[in-house]
Design a protein around this nucleic acid. Structure first.
Lengths: 234, 234
DNA sequence: ATTAATTGTGTCAAAATAACACCATAAACA
DNA sequence: TGTTTATGGTGTTATTTTGACACAATTAAT
């Protein structure tokens, strides 16, 4: 039965990096641990992989427990395997990257896990190698959002172009030209004009768009150029 | 000592997808297993992670054992965790992606592992989920090579522009325009004209270039546009 | 009605791209 | 030795894309 007797079995963890956007800042959902080890310190939401569970199911379970959401945007990012990354016992952690619409989450579940939405600038020190994971994830967000239309995953179903622009400005911490941004986004053919207007604006009301789901799926894997080229000169 | 008593420990494997280029085709280094389980079948080169070994060190060890090479281009790709992917025992596998200069490898080591270089078209059925891993890796090669200068990792130290073009044509299975390709690659500023010419040409000898290592490192993470835009319209 | 803030759209010059044609070089061979 | 053949190297041009920029329209508050 045991074909691999000499190989060592290792604890396998899953950690989730969860991004949201509140209309102004990109935020991370972090938990203040009320359990040992490292109780009282901040960390990513995580857990151990169950023996009867696929990796992606494990990630979905952990994300569901914290946010109450299913079918959210999830990617597997990278697996961290330094020997002493967890001082208690050797643990290899598979990191997942999730984008959610910040208003959709179950705030009761978040509260019960002692979790908070925290802006990237204000994020506290994190346990283990979680800071490294977060840095990689931020880089990944910047990279991927420049080439693929993942930004929509952070916005509500109906959104305006100025909202979309504020999102990209938050991701890259740069101002963008309204006119060029609008031209570029509209030219992707991904936006459907719903005909209605934003109601909660104090001045001119902006057009509400929604994502063209069919084209989104068709074209997700083709590259784009959402950012000005100047962003890309390392 | 044991802080996580109820969590299950799992076998952790490493599998390596090794690409090479022989001047004409992209090839994979695959092994015909002369050991159990699945003896006689083809698979990726792999092994188990040692208890005292970082993930990246494990990958480097496995790659060194097979090719005799160190300091080759390696990326961690993805971790595969389906429950029954290995029928003998649950095993989670971290896949690494390596690009090597095909003439540099230690052919004795390759022979002793019963390994062969096989073109993508001629690749045999593979054990477990290795075919899925290979498909993902081919996609990753296409994706990454269009945006970052990783193609050089598959070429010898000195190379000509026609060689480089044949490499890209092999990766994407499309013909490219010589003039546009040359202009685009030269405009990156990554190529240093060595002044000498290719000797093993039957007709006009091509200029030998080498990579500008300094600029390569500086600019590796900025995006490029190595492929014509037509390639990118999904 | 005027002001202030924000949205939507047009113009234009510069740069990048794709399609295309010509000349140069070197080996093979008559 | 000069012609042929295969390949390498570079220039031109029209089209498209980009980035920088200016002006008009809408809405609420005053």
């Amino acid at each position: 039965m045991n074909n691999y007797p000499q190989a060592s079995r290792i604890l396998l963890a899953i950690d989730c990096i969860i991004f949201g956007f509140d209309g102004k800042d990109i935020k991370l959902l972090l938990i203040k641990r009320n359990f040992e080890p490292e109780k009282g310190k901040w960390s990513l939401m995580g857990g151990f992989l169950n023996a009867d569970e696929d990796l992606s199911d494990g990630a979905a379970r952990i994300l569901y427990n914290l946010t109450g959401l299913k079918n959210i945007y999830v990617e597997q990012l990278e697996t961290y395997g330094k020997i002493n990354r967890d001082p208690a016992e050797r643990t290899v952690s598979v990191v997942f990257f999730a984008l959610i619409q910040i208003d959709d989450h179950d705030s009761e579940a978040v509260k019960s896990h002692n979790a908070s939405w925290i802006t990237l600038e204000n994020r506290p020190a994190l346990i283990f190698d979680h800071e490294e994971m977060v840095c990689k994830a931020i880089e990944h967000l910047k990279y991927k959002a420049a080439l693929h239309p993942i930004g929509f995953e952070l916005l509500p179903e109906f959104f305006t172009i100025p909202q979309l622009q504020k999102l990209y400005e938050a991701i890259y911490s740069i101002p963008l030209d309204r006119r060029n941004f609008s031209r570029k986004l509209l030219s992707t053919g991904l936006l459907i004009d719903t005909g209605s207007k934003n109601s909660n604006s104090t001045t001119k009301k902006a057009t509400l768009y929604k994502l063209d789901e069919v084209r989104y799926k068709e074209k997700f894997h083709s590259f784009w150029n959402f950012m000005p080229d100047s962003m890309k000169q390392s």
